[in-house]
Design a protein around this nucleic acid. Structure first.
Length: 183
DNA sequence: TGTTAGATCCAT
DNA sequence: TGGATCTAACAC
């Protein structure tokens, strides 16, 4: 297992999104190590992307997106669920990748198909907002052996308000994986 | 200080 | 198809 370095996140957001598929999200908490394999993601390309929160400008909420790559952007959605994003590209680009579904690997209880459920199962909440993913308790790693997979491209979910940006194929998932939220 | 919409999920 | 449930963002 090899922890992803800063450089991994400091690249084109679509590339990072695609390469995050198959990687392991790891959270050491309450004496346990929770591990889930990333099987579905969405790319949010920055302030010009009308579906991205950073399109609203630099605010208290989106501050982390404007910061350096390799940090977690966690927010509460619909008052009920948390969503977990990975900040990508150079500081100021305000782009990120939303994690939408995981395949349980270790110590995972409950559903992991969907951004809200995924955070629930991994113990992710507001306290991890802005957390550095090069830390020792919450990070993403490449497993020693990654089985080959085919990537499917689809429009992003729940962003109909984003006009033409809603049609872009910026959602990626592992073809045939049973944990994908909306195949 | 008040209002509103939202990168969701689940039951009906 | 609608209800749960909360907060950042913006209007006033």
């Amino acid at each position: 297992m090899r922890k992803l370095e800063r450089q991994f996140y400091d690249r084109d957001t679509i590339l990072v999104a695609r390469e995050l598929l198959g990687k392991y999200l790891i959270h050491h908490t309450h004496g346990k190590t929770l591990i889930g394999k990333i099987v579905e993601v969405e790319a949010y390309l920055g302030p010009h992307d009308l579906a991205a929160h950073s399109a609203k400008g630099r605010t208290k909420r989106t501050e982390v997106m404007f910061g350096p790559p390799g940090h977690a952007y966690v927010y509460l959605i619909y008052g009920m669920y948390f969503c977990m994003n990975v900040v990508t590209e150079k500081e100021g680009h305000a782009s990120a990748v939303l994690l939408r579904a995981l395949e349980p690997v270790q110590n995972i209880e409950g559903k992991t198909s969907g951004p809200g459920l995924l955070c629930n199962a991994m113990g992710i909440d507001k306290h991890l907002h802005g957390h550095d993913l090069l830390s020792s308790d919450f990070y993403i790693a490449a497993p020693d052996h990654t089985p080959p997979h085919v990537i499917v491209k689809k429009p992003r979910v729940g962003v109909a308000y984003a006009k033409h940006w809603a049609k872009r194929l910026l959602r990626f998932y592992i073809k045939g994986n049973p944990y994908v939220s909306k195949p």
